[in-house]
Design a protein around this nucleic acid. Structure first.
Lengths: 206, 206
DNA sequence: ACCTGAACACCGTTCAAGT
DNA sequence: ACCTGAACACCGTTCAAGT
């Protein structure tokens, strides 16, 4: 009864419980239509209790999105850490990006959804841009080393990010149907992008 | 009192009125959080009336999304109709795509949102893929004429669509901040893509 | 055929009290 | 400091009636 960590559930760590439950329900339904009341129910507290930790549902969603950006950034830097040269980092990073999205469709959508994009939270925008920064850094390094064509890095980064983002969402939406789009649109599109980034003399053979 | 077209409002064309009002409210709020009851209110009918024309809110949303895909397809073919050669068509088409999205942010998000993607309506998927088909046709033609590099057209089309989609959504979300991403990420990213599509000998100078 | 009014179950959110 | 119970306003959706 005197242990501080014990029975941290129905008492104490409600905030974390709410967040965990929210993730759980997003995984179940594929969206963030979950209700705060249901979260309270599952957490074994009254429906008013969560309001002691989050002013409203929107701010809970914002919190989830921020966690999402952190996780995405982590996945990207991890994927890019192994290969030695920038050119070899790009593909794994791309795959890690799309993977993250398709594995967490609801979370990924939420991260870029209207509900959070207009949020007063400046953090959100900052964290989203941190993703961009990771790609930017890789490309900058790649140009220095001579892996990539010389041109405005920010343009290249914008192209990469947009392509990742687009592929991920199309994949989540199930619009990349093999019969129409090819067996592996992911790899195909990345190849096209790589050809746009690579220096002419290092471009893949026809 | 006997005119058939007169006072087509509170009677008669409720279905169209509901759709129009929905578009109107999407434009106002930037999302599709509008309520059916409010639509009924604005249309001057009881809150139960819209249910005679749409089984539920989801099916109204699906209808809106389908209209959106039609309009997008129209905008794309229009933009590509003027230039003579495929290579000159791609850029205008790209701009038309992003333009459509940034001008109708709520609609564009809805078209690819979870609410409509999982819809039982097969039309939706079909119409979305029609967008892909337009890009595909352009690239096919471009390869035949020799404007674009020879490689799986579907991969190129996937890359294009993903890039358009991604740029559009990033733009809508306000994530393309000039200081971070460059003055004109749109054009920059498209340039990078074009370099990936163009044949080596026609590629722009460094 | 198309619309109305009342009714149901359920939310998000608030607030005065409880421990 | 943290949680509960009742209460408010508002939804989506249904249905028996109205015209």
């Amino acid at each position: 009864m005197t242990e501080p960590t014990a029975r941290a559930y129905h008492h104490g760590d409600l905030r974390r419980t709410v967040i965990d439950t929210a993730f759980e329900m997003m995984g179940e339904t594929g969206d963030w239509q979950f209700t705060l009341r249901e979260i309270a129910r599952r957490s074994g507290v009254s429906h008013a209790a969560p309001y002691k930790h989050f002013p409203d549902k929107a701010s809970l969603l914002a919190e989830l999105a921020m966690i999402g950006f952190d996780r995405l950034g982590q996945a990207l830097t991890e994927a890019a850490s192994a290969p030695a040269v920038p050119r070899d980092k790009l593909l794994p990073m791309s795959r890690a990006y799309v993977d993250f999205g398709t594995r967490n469709p609801a979370l990924y959508r939420l991260m870029f959804g209207a509900e959070t994009s207009g949020a007063p939270d400046v953090h959100l925008g900052e964290r989203a841009l941190a993703t961009f920064a990771i790609v930017l850094d890789l490309l900058t390094l790649g140009q220095e080393v001579g892996d990539f064509r010389s041109r405005a890095v920010r343009d290249q980064a914008a192209a990469c990010w947009a392509l990742f983002h687009g592929m991920t969402l199309l994949a989540i939406d199930g619009l990349l149907i093999p019969e129409k789009v090819g067996a592996n649109p992911l790899e195909g599109a990345l190849q096209v992008l790589l050809e746009g980034l690579s220096r002419a003399d290092t471009a893949g053979s026809d």
